[in-house]
């Protein structure tokens, strides 16, 4: 599913569009599950918690005024629900209370940043049609030749070539490369970061 922008996504969500709801689940579901699982250490519980969060999101889908608000809601809800789950578990066995508290009460910014970037990539992938995705991978990941791909998928070489080009165009479009007038700043930043090890 191609979502043009955050604004586009928000409009559809507020309209109650179920496809955008599915899209958000596909993009954010696993990301949030992983985030929650890191706190609760329980796969099934994590999935359960995330399911409930999405249900809440649907219940209040009209109230958001930005996608940033949606994101904040998702992470806040994930965090609160995880901590509540942990605390109720800990109440059952209070022995190692203090220690595990310490490790979970501090929020780690990096996990949310990671989660957000992963969501970005998932959303880029989400827009590639299945067949194109497959050709793209066989060509650029498995590094098969066009002939090999064509033979395996029973397609013509020309189709394979076209699909590869198209996939790249789509992905590049998503990554929106603008001619690099800011590139120098950017390199400087990179070098600055790398230097300070």
């Amino acid at each position: 599913m191609e979502v043009k922008s955050d604004e586009h996504c928000l409009v559809l969500l507020k309209e109650g569009n179920e496809d955008i709801y599915r899209y958000l689940i596909r993009v954010y579901g696993p990301v949030l599950c992983s985030y929650v699982e890191k706190i609760v250490f329980d796969r099934a519980a994590a999935e359960d918690i995330v399911e409930d969060i999405f249900v809440k999101l649907w219940e209040k889908h009209t109230v958001f005024d930005s996608l940033l608000g949606v994101r904040k809601f998702l992470y806040m809800a994930a965090r609160n629900a995880s901590l509540n789950f942990k605390r109720s578990k800990e109440r059952e066995k209070t022995k190692h209370d203090a220690f595990s508290r310490l490790s979970t009460e501090t929020i780690s910014i990096d996990e949310i940043i990671y989660a957000e970037l992963m969501a970005e990539v998932r959303s880029a992938i989400d827009s590639l049609p299945h067949k194109m995705r497959k050709i793209f991978i066989m060509g650029y990941i498995d590094q098969l030749s066009n002939q090999e791909i064509a033979a395996q998928l029973d397609l013509s070489c020309q189709t394979v070539r076209n699909q590869k080009t198209k996939a790249l165009t789509i992905i590049r479009g998503l990554l929106k490369g603008h001619p690099g007038d800011r590139i120098i700043l950017y390199i400087t930043l990179l070098l600055a970061i790398r230097g300070k090890l």
């Binding site: 940033l68 992470y75 806040m76 949310i112 940043i113 957000e116 970005e120 929106k176 603008h178 690099g180």
Partner: peptide, 22 residues
Amino acid sequence: DEKKISEALYIASLIKKQVNKE
């Protein structure tokens, strides 16, 4: 917590923009 989440989302959005050269 909310402040930290906002901070993280803000930084993530900056990094995304940086990747997209925006």
